[in-house]
């Protein structure tokens, strides 16, 4: 058993992949609670898709894909912030129109420059292709996310619960929302390496969704979500090594299984409480 666990770790690129998964998963899980409870899932998904042209342009220019994604992500966060400030059209409509457009542009650029194989890496993640530099960047991103959420916890709390009170005490909910969008942008960039553009949403939503079925308090939801994200990264990683399946989908499917188990557990508990 121990041998079975240790065997893949003999290769440094595999160790890097595993660490990358844990770092990105943890960062996602911390933000997940806010994304779920503030109803920002769609924004997170749009962000992941809109980053694609940035990655492809970076590839074309021969610079770091990570840097390309980062710039695109920050621009996207600012874009979403601006779209939500102006009235008129509903925010999700504006975001839907803009960022599917960017995604299409990314695909179009991609089809001009690379083969289909590279496309799957970006769309579905390439956990074993993580470079040492990327790993450091992911560590920094995870630390930024954790420190920011700890430091601004009460500001996140009040702007989520009662934005009116927040304005009345001089704290701008838009400013906090901008900050949160930037954190999501950073995290999406880290997570894209692991699960790809298409599946990032799962890491942003499912950890807190599953945790919310089992815990009521926000710190518990965040903590439990982190545990779920790390477990599914590790399980998915080994599944991918031994069964030779795509790592991103293995991680996401494990996460989905955890959610389903939590859902069944909670349903049974409710049913038992009612029949008592």
């Amino acid at each position: 058993m121990v041998e079975w666990l240790i065997e893949p770790l003999g290769y440094s690129f595999i160790v890097r992949g595993l660490i990358a998964g844990i770092l990105a998963g943890t960062a996602c899980a911390v933000l997940s609670a806010f994304i779920v409870w503030r109803g920002m899932a769609f924004v997170g998904d749009a962000m992941a898709h809109a980053i694609l042209p940035g990655i492809v342009l970076a590839f074309m220019a021969g610079i770091s894909l990570f840097a390309g994604a980062l710039v695109a992500a920050i621009l996207t966060a600012v874009g979403i912030g601006l779209l939500s400030r102006r009235g008129g059209m509903k925010e999700d409509t504006a975001i839907g129109v803009m960022f599917t457009g960017f995604f299409a542009l990314g695909i179009l650029l991609l089809s001009k420059v690379t083969s289909y194989q590279d496309l799957t890496h970006i769309l579905f993640g390439d956990i074993l292709g993580v470079a040492r530099g990327d790993l450091i960047a992911m560590l920094v991103i995870m630390l930024i996310v954790i420190v920011a959420v700890l430091f601004f916890y009460k500001e996140l709390l009040v702007t989520s619960f009662d934005p009116g009170h927040s304005v009345a005490i001089g704290l701008s909910p838009e400013l906090v929302r901008y900050g949160l969008l930037l954190l999501i942008a950073l995290t999406v960039v880290a997570a894209i390496q692991v699960v790809g553009v298409v599946l990032v949403l799962a890491l942003l939503v499912t950890p807190a969704a599953a945790a919310s079925l089992l815990a009521k308090r926000l710190p518990q939801i965040i903590g439990l979500g982190m545990v779920f994200a790390v477990i599914s990264t590790v399980v998915g990683f080994y599944a991918s090594y031994y069964a030779d399946v795509a790592s991103g989908s293995a991680i996401v499917l494990t996460l989905t299984m955890i959610f389903l188990m939590a859902f069944v557990y909670q349903s049974i508990r409710k049913w038992m409480m009612r029949s008592q």
Partner: peptide
């Protein structure tokens, strides 16, 4: 504020909400 402007489903405890009244005296972080 009016009830409808508050997200009552957001996971916060009574103590945490009452503490929000103190935020104005505390500030960032």
């Amino acid at each position: 504020p009016q009830r409808s402007t508050v997200d009552w489903q957001f996971p916060v405890t009574v103590r945490e909400v009452v503490m929000m009244g103190r935020y104005v005296h505390l500030g960032w972080g």
